[in-house]
Design a binder for these strands. Structure first.
Lengths: 259, 259
DNA sequence: CGAGGGGTTGACGTTGTTCAATGAGCGTGG
DNA sequence: CCACGCTCATTGAACAACGTCAACCCCTCG
């Protein structure tokens, strides 16, 4: 086994010692994508040391030409597009275990910004390293391409959510999505998970005003679907909440692919 | 030159004769992506004969496992997600020259349906052929990946449009997008272009009711921005319309890439 | 102790939906 | 040929969803 020996400081190794955060990250994404051990090691050794970003700090700015992709180790980030009046639309939430902004590899210049919503621990992977990984291993190209296409699928679901669902169903759907994604990476426990967004940030995801978000959350609480206190959500009636939201997790492609 | 000799029936050839529709399609996408002539030929010879779909007929149904990708030769199609009540949200419009549903290659099973909005002429490319193209030519993989990432960028713009813009600006933005995309593939002439959608279909793109679309279009007409008669739009005040919409075409990545 | 960010609540205005009725165009069958 | 049924577009009126403004709370941090 590649990652069987546990270092005293938490790092996993096989001859080589990786940053414990990075080892954990790679182990996490291996749950979703079928990396071989050799692939996982080749990936790990190219991921560079972690950086911490403050809340509301930009990881990438729109129109910027960048040469690396970011991976979230800890914290919440978002893809966001800024409006002319200074407000913004969040188009996707990124949680620990996400390859954020792999999009910048084929696109070269991003059409949107990446911003930390909480303080974030980030690791980086240079585009030249991605090219080398892909050249050595066409299967890696498929995995990375697949990963970005899941982001596109999430975008489509958000379009449907914002365009077709109203009020309680819309906010419930977002909560169901984050719960399902958190669960897969081991960040949800029996319906309880961290949800560190403010009501304003929630509104920026959903196209609602902060005040409307407040009222909708109160209704979900009063209806007994969930509690949401101190940045922690507990879902009490999961099936009913998914039903209210019209939530079907297929679009997240969470089950491991065979290929 | 590969495509210099013109056949009597309109096909272009170099030893080999391609379907004239396919030759035209490949010539069109070569305006956007930097294919070499050899690449263009390898692609052309793998694209199979065209099929015609009726209005509102499905090219692909959600959850279906398919083994080919579709290319639009003529007509309008859409990515759509169906709601529980039978209504639907359109998440992207596809016009002639688009690789539609290349997403199904890495995803294998689609999270959404592809439906013809008008009668459509479609060509197909088998997934096995895509794999062969990519294996022979890693640059082709980048081009195809890039193409799907532009779709993701359009999705993000739509999220912003539906989530942040209201009324006239929202519908104006969609019109600006289709105009810009039509122009690139030679389907717009000095602000005039085919726009064969019904008001109902427009509403399904924008998250508006058909009745509201009707009223908004009337306002745009009354304000002198455009005329829209018999499925043809003519934009009279392009700069003002883009300004109203907050439209910036960067997200379409229309300019030819160097790589 | 004061300032600032986040949450809560009420009153009121705007945007967009629903229901309903009408007309124009088009293909089909008598 | 016209009558019909259909789809699409148009318009009005009542209603619901959501935003804005304003006031107030609590908490944290300097």
């Amino acid at each position: 086994m590649v990652y069987s020996e546990q270092h005293s400081d938490g790092a996993l190794l096989k001859g080589r010692t990786f940053d414990p955060d990075i080892a954990k990250f790679v182990a996490t994404i291996r749950k979703r994508f079928s990396f071989s051990e050799a692939e996982a090691e080749r990936l790990s050794e190219r991921i560079t040391l972690t950086t911490v970003y403050d809340r509301e700090e930009f990881l990438v700015r729109e129109d910027e030409r960048i040469h690396f992709s970011s991976l979230i180790i800890e914290g919440y980030a978002a893809r966001a597009k800024y409006n002319e009046d200074g407000s913004r639309q969040i188009t996707q939430l990124q949680i620990p275990g996400d390859f954020v902004d792999l999009h910048s590899y084929p696109l070269e210049v991003l059409d949107h910004s990446i911003v930390a919503l909480t303080s974030c621990t980030i690791a980086k992977l240079h585009h030249t390293d991605i090219s080398e990984l892909i050249d050595h291993d066409p299967r890696m190209a498929r995995i990375l391409w697949f990963s970005t296409m899941v982001d596109a699928a999430m975008h489509r679901e958000w379009i449907q959510n914002i365009g077709s669902r109203e009020g309680k169903a819309r906010i419930a759907h977002l909560i169901c999505e984050i719960h399902a994604r958190s669960e897969v990476v081991g960040l949800a426990d029996n319906g309880t998970f961290d949800f560190p967004l403010t009501q304003t940030q929630l509104g920026e995801c959903l196209g609602f005003s902060q005040i409307h978000v407040n009222r909708l959350l109160r209704q979900l609480r009063e209806d007994g679907y969930l509690t949401f206190k101190e940045k922690i959500i507990t879902i009490h009636k999961r099936d009913e909440l998914c039903d209210l939201a019209g939530f079907d997790p297929n679009y997240l492609y969470l089950t491991k692919r065979s290929s």
